[in-house]
Design a protein around this nucleic acid. Sequence first.
DNA 1: AAGTAAGTGGGGAATTGTGGGGAAAAAATA
DNA 2: TATTTTTTCCCCACAATTCCCCACTTACTT
Lengths: 143, 143
Amino acid sequence: MFIGEYKHNLDEKGRIAIPKKFRVALAQGAVVTRGLDDCLFLYTIEEWQVLAEKLAGLPFSQANTRAFARLMLAGAMEVALDKQGRIVLPEYLRTYATLQKEATVVGLYNRLEIWDHAVWGEYTKQTEVARNEIAEQLSELGI
Amino acid sequence: MFIGEYKHNLDEKGRIAIPKKFRVALAQGAVVTRGLDDCLFLYTIEEWQVLAEKLAGLPFSQANTRAFARLMLAGAMEVALDKQGRIVLPEYLRTYATLQKEATVVGLYNRLEIWDHAVWGEYTKQTEVARNEIAEQLSELGI
DNA sequence: AAGTAAGTGGGGAATTGTGGGGAAAAAATA
DNA sequence: TATTTTTTCCCCACAATTCCCCACTTACTT
């Protein structure tokens, strides 16, 4: 289970360290792709397989599902951890998420997200305002 | 069962002592995360597992459920008690709850909450006013 | 008033994150 | 096809953080 928030830096080669505790889970391989809200999604191979099949199942007759499939499927790239537990983020993904140096890695159960540090700060600041309303909407889930 | 109110101090390393009587319950591990009303929630591993699964089940295609999952899942961090019965609160959680030194730990049956002492004081003062009204609204729940 | 139990503070060792240099592989050009 | 250039990958070393342990202080109990 991926949870938590971690501040890591990209180096000049576009590499980023994966938090130690997640490395075993990703040792078999991982897939990074374009995510929602200007961040990157990172999945284990198995989780990615599940998601990819769902995406592939979307009707390509509709313009918006086509766009969504292209965002995530065409954006995807398989990555491997090096001996120090880092992955290389291809340039197009760094551009997409406006990643430069400071990044925040966050765990969301079955995926990791990689954010530019400043963008993540903005996002949390904005959504914190609405959190109580959202919480009330979700009360029916028993949360 | 967690009940009661305890005043503890954070030290310079961001550690806080867990009230003695709750330590056995949390010995197997605990998870702290961002809570509602500017405090932190702390669960036993088992309780957290249930909650995490509910959160993970929310569809990531909707903006507000995404935001809520990021609040609680990405906010979560597994913590362990040290030999003295303390946990370390990561910096981002201390910032979230505006925790500096004085803190109040309160028990709410299946979770603990960690508040900045002053914020907790404010909160209880404010809700005291509305308490009677709230009580009447709750009568229909059989309380 | 003394002893015990719980909370607080801090120092040192081990682990994890970061940066960079060099070798191997791949790509491009002649 | 040979040679040069670029890119990727692997490894080493430093820096920073985290974790673990020991000691002190305060508060409660008998």
